[in-house]
Design a protein around this nucleic acid. Structure first.
Lengths: 408, 408
DNA sequence: AGCTTTTTTCTCGACAGTCGAGAAATTAGA
DNA sequence: TCTAATTTCTCGACTGTCGAGAAAAAAGCT
């Protein structure tokens, strides 16, 4: 069923367009906004006047005043229009970042994630959020959005972690981490989904004509995958399929998730460890493997140790077969590999390519582009900002009465 | 990048809404359209007046005149506003159907698809299309759309068959089947994609609140899969992943496509034949297997023949593992099984469930709904109409100047 | 038959939004 | 001080949606 349209929705859409142009380029003049959005100059006047009245954007006083003619007035987001907190959960740490509405990082700190069940975990996060606002003396009510990322599977609409390596299928509802005084919306996304979104945005920025779809593959203790697709004239579509726990080998090695034969049970760090030491594949996987441990195996492999080489090669093959299935089911697309596992790319590459090579998709469409992108943490943060601000902007514009009221 | 909006687009969107309501319910009164679309009565007046002026819809004279009050005037599509030809290509036949703008079937005939290369094949279709318009004495120029379906992989935007069981990776461009005098747009879609689209539309009609996503699995000589997803307030999103040639078993049985270990090489009719007769899995697959042949094997299996039973069970397992991968990469969704292979469902079922059961997605989300829907041909045709008319309507509305001009 | 009731369609004016054109503003340079 | 250049701002025309109520037309009632 299609949705009906109206003139008000037109204004909403075009306001969003103006804000997103401001996000992308930061601090724009009237004419520049007009060029970037394709809207008529008069429309820009009207929209910016509205947004200014609603205290969402402001004219920045400092103007470079270069060239002749009437000096341009630059618009930018009002910094204290609202705040955003990103919460990046990794296996041992939780990182909190406080960002203002203009997108500048105000504060960042990390805390150990601690032991205990989901309740203790949520309490830790709750405390972390409190600390974040108190350190910068910010009103809880002015935090518009808390954007959480984690490994595992997020509920498609609620901020609930449906499955995670640590808590299994015990659900974690991050909305419960906000106590009284907070009005923020909470969103939760898979970490690699954010990476895919960030990579897509980078592609768009550098060369607009790039392929509008890509996959991000994160290698580490667990295996993450995100897909980002730019659809014509709309908000990009990003998703995080359950790649790490897709079936690789029926009745195969035991996985941390309890099932058998998952991709992760062959390509995760613990699986590489298991294979290198010829431990039976049905032994319970190690909870956590220090990277140094895998580094040692990699060193042995690079010195010619057959068993170590085979461990990496089999891990690569599991990834390659998995990627071939991804391409079969989602269409051909380039793959960007990231995460701590990229340091073993030399040992994995052959297996990955072997796994891909023999399948129908690859024979038909050619080997997909495989690009290593090492700096995962900054991609995750970038992905947080992209996604979070697009939601915040949408929400702010959506609540039109606020704009009307502020106009008084 | 978002697209800019304008008042004209609003009218386009709302006109499309009116036309789609007319498609769904056929022959509606002013008030009914208003109810169905949520638009104000005055807006309906304006839009219907426009569409009538543009000779797209008309008031149907015959009114049931039941109840008191001013009698309602019913609107419906003008039948001769344009025509649509669907071309359904199967392994041995090509079926042509001529449909008028109101959606009523005017003519239908089938022809053998013949032998020879792609050029001869296109010539056959070209002749078939000519025959279709001549039999009904319809002007070639008034055919708005030719909607073609086939097994295989269609190009995402062009009407080009990128890979097919018959022609392999030799491309077939159906646009070339239209000679001079034709102005029709040509679209090509995978057959099972249309089935998925039709099933989704049926779900929407019967119970609006059903899950907004489903997969259609077509079992036969080859294996087809379509996914249909209803996104909030938009046109449904349908796709046809390359499921049949997704990797099932590394270095496995030889497939018709030339690769090894595809799902089809275990679950296609020729694969069941191969397995039942214990032919080595690397023998060249049979070009075509009569259903009677598989029926015989099924009869033997039902009488307790172990080898025949195993052939079906393994086919089922290949499907089950494949479906588990589908659910991993596309999220949990119900599966509708169709095609000639559904007559062996009793023999396949156990294997399918076995393949699904052990994977992480199914352990987490439960066994997906598996529903058998036998009548594939009518689903294919339904899918053609759904998709084709949504495109035709969009095009007609999109060309606004035609509406203005006709208004003179 | 004539009046009332009921239901539907049609019309009008208010309001929101976009656009093009051109006026107003403001600076650099002659 | 004047002119050219450049940007912002404003005005009127146009398109579109909406609510309210007028107009139309059939059924029922007296």
């Amino acid at each position: 069923m299609l949705a009906k349209s109206s003139t008000e929705l037109v204004r909403q859409q075009n306001s969003a367009l103006v804000l997103s142009a401001l996000r992308r380029h930061g601090r724009l003049a009237h004419t520049e906004i007009s060029d970037a959005t394709g809207l008529a100059s008069a429309t820009i006047s009207s929209i910016t006047a509205d947004l200014e009245r609603a205290r969402i954007i402001e004219k920045s006083e400092q103007q470079a005043t270069v060239g002749r003619g009437r000096p341009r007035v630059l618009f930018s987001q009002r910094r204290n229009c609202g705040y955003l907190i990103t919460v990046i959960i990794s296996s041992d740490l939780i990182q909190y970042s406080l960002v203002d509405y203009a997108g500048t990082l105000l504060d960042r700190f990390s805390e150990p994630r601690g032991e205990g069940g989901t309740a203790a975990f949520l309490a830790t996060i709750s405390a972390g959020l409190e600390r974040a606002v108190e350190r910068s003396r910010i009103d809880r009510g002015s935090v518009l959005l808390v954007s959480v990322s984690s490994k595992g599977i997020a509920h498609p609409s609620e901020p609930v972690l449906v499955w995670s390596p640590v808590f299994g299928s015990q659900p974690v509802d991050f909305a419960a981490a906000l106590k009284d005084g907070w009005h923020a919306k909470v969103i939760l996304n898979n970490e690699t989904l954010l990476v895919a979104g960030a990579l897509l945005e980078r592609e768009v920025k550098t060369q607009g004509g790039g392929e509008p779809v890509l996959a991000a593959l994160s290698l580490g203790h667990s295996i993450g995958l995100g897909i980002a697709r730019r659809v014509a004239g709309g908000v990009p579509e990003i998703s995080a399929p359950n790649f790490g726990h897709m079936l690789h080998m029926p009745s195969g090695g035991l996985c941390r998730c309890g099932a058998r034969g998952c991709v992760e049970a062959y390509a995760g760090f613990y699986a590489i460890l298991r294979a290198a030491f010829e431990v039976p594949v049905d032994t319970i996987p190690a909870k956590f493997v220090p990277v140094a441990e895998i580094d040692k195996i990699a060193a042995r492999a690079r010195q010619g140790n057959r068993m170590a080489q085979l461990a990496f090669r089999n891990a690569g093959a599991a990834l390659g077969y998995g990627l071939s299935r991804l391409l079969s089911l989602h269409g051909h697309m380039p793959v960007f590999i990231t995460g701590p596992g990229t340091r073993y790319q030399d040992l994995l590459q052959a297996g990955i390519e072997e796994g891909l090579a023999q399948t129908h998709v690859v024979r038909l469409g050619g080997m997909p582009g495989l690009t290593v992108v090492p700096d995962e943490p900054s991609l995750v943060f970038e992905g947080h900002l992209n996604l979070a601000f697009s939601i915040v902007d949408q929400d702010i514009i959506g609540s039109r009465q606020s704009m009307q009221a502020a106009g008084e």
